[in-house]
Amino acid sequence: MNSKINIGIIGAAGYTGGELLRILIHHPHVAITFAHSKSQAGKPVYATHTDLLGDTDLHFSGESTQELLQLTNLNAIFLCSGHGESQKFLAQHDLPAGLKVIDLSTDFRDESGEFVYGLPELQRDRIIEADRIANPGCFATSIELALLPLAQSQQLTSDVHISAITGSTGAGQALSPTTHFSWRNNNMSIYKAFTHQHLKEIRMSWTLLHPGFDGAIHFVPYRGDFTRGIMANVYTPYSGTLEEAKAMYQHYYAQHPFTHVSEAPIDLKQVVNTNKCLLHLDVHQGQLLVTSIIDNLTKGASGQAVQNMNLLFGLPEDAGLRLKAPSF
């Protein structure tokens, strides 16, 4: 692609907006037309996202978003405002013809309206042809990727049990008692056990491949005392061998650049700051255990949003997303 993709970001001062800026500033095929923020209007982007000092002189736009949308040659917008805000935004604004929309909220993950659920490992072909993408949730991404191959092989035949932990950035940037450092540090807790909002999209994804799946999904999420990353341990009855399971998973993900099966046990530092999902398999007493790890802000949010953008515009799926993990 010769010309740049002109993009705008709504809600650019939060965690997901900041991650998009970090990725897209260095994306070889993107020009950031505006980064909109009501709370930070007029300020340099690096005044809020302080690590971007020296990387960009971009300022947050605060003017009418309708005026921003009419800017010449705007090709795509990312919606990074709070849940419920995307529906309001689209109802209140007249979008230019041909403008692609990638929404990072929960508002359209049921594929309502024109939105396609943007998990590339599940429905890349539909994403390529879409105009509006509902970016998956962070827990949902990690958990869905753990069992997509089993669902495709029609072996998702019973209840699924999930224990998963996420870092503090998964709760967003606004302060609350459970995100305060003094509470979170050296601490853990369970929240929304069996009722988490991502359960609906998890079931939807698995049933797209295995329509007969009607087992219960028992999901217990944990808050961790670290900032970034998700580790999900997912297990369900399985009648095959470990070697058969590995072959199934390696075949399913062979053409997907970011999801990989590891022979060795995995840890979060392998994926933090990257767009990768790593999976490790084990079979024990008739149960397939899949450990799945991602960075909640990249593969679980902004990185996957850029992956979807690449697909929408016919770019290499990994463009701008070969990011380095901290390792140690």
Score class of each variant (00 low, 15 high):
T207D: 00
A13W: 04
D125K: 06
N75R: 05
L58I: 06
T207G: 01
M188I: 01
A35Y: 14
L175K: 14
H284Y: 09
H256Q: 15
L278P: 00
Y249T: 11
A171G: 04
Q40K: 13
S182N: 10
R132E: 05
A216V: 03
A319H: 04
L69E: 03
V30A: 15
D110P: 00
Y46E: 11
G18N: 00
D57A: 04
V101T: 03
A91N: 10
Q197F: 00
F139M: 05
L71A: 09
A134Q: 03
A319M: 04
L90Q: 07
L323V: 00
Q250N: 15
Q287A: 11
M231I: 15
G320P: 12
S189I: 12
L69H: 01
Y222K: 02
F60W: 10
K43A: 11
S142G: 13
N75E: 14
S105G: 05
D103S: 01
P237W: 06
P177E: 09
Q255V: 11
H260Y: 11
L156P: 07
A216F: 05
E317Q: 00
K276Y: 12
D159S: 09
Q173A: 15
D295C: 02
N135G: 03
V306F: 06
H83W: 08
L58P: 13
T274W: 01
F89T: 08
T166V: 10
N186E: 06
P136N: 12
E67F: 05
S3Q: 15
K299R: 15
I25M: 14
S39F: 11
H26Y: 07
H180R: 09
S327A: 07
H196C: 01
T298Q: 08
Q152M: 08
D107Y: 15
G17A: 04
F181I: 09
L321W: 08
I25H: 13
K43D: 04
E201W: 06
K100Y: 03
I23H: 10
L268V: 08
V45H: 12
A301H: 00
T33F: 08
A264M: 06
V234R: 09
S61F: 04
L52H: 02
Q287V: 12
E85F: 10
F226W: 06
Q40P: 03
H284E: 15
G42M: 14
T259I: 13
K269R: 08
E129T: 13
T169F: 10
E121F: 10
P211K: 14
S64V: 15
A140S: 09
R126I: 06
S176P: 02
S105N: 00
A47D: 11
I133S: 04
Q155K: 15
E201H: 02
N275Q: 07
T48A: 10
F213G: 11
G212V: 12
Q304V: 14
N75Y: 04
I162M: 00
F213H: 13
D295P: 00
Y235S: 14
P221S: 13
D267M: 04
E244N: 12
M248C: 11
M231H: 12
T207S: 01
R228F: 09
D57R: 07
T195N: 02
N73V: 06
I162N: 02
Q92D: 14
L71E: 07
F34I: 08
R184L: 04
F139H: 05
F258M: 06
T241I: 11
S86W: 04
G320E: 00
S105Q: 05
D110K: 02
K4P: 06
D282L: 03
V271L: 07
E19S: 06
F219L: 08
L95C: 01
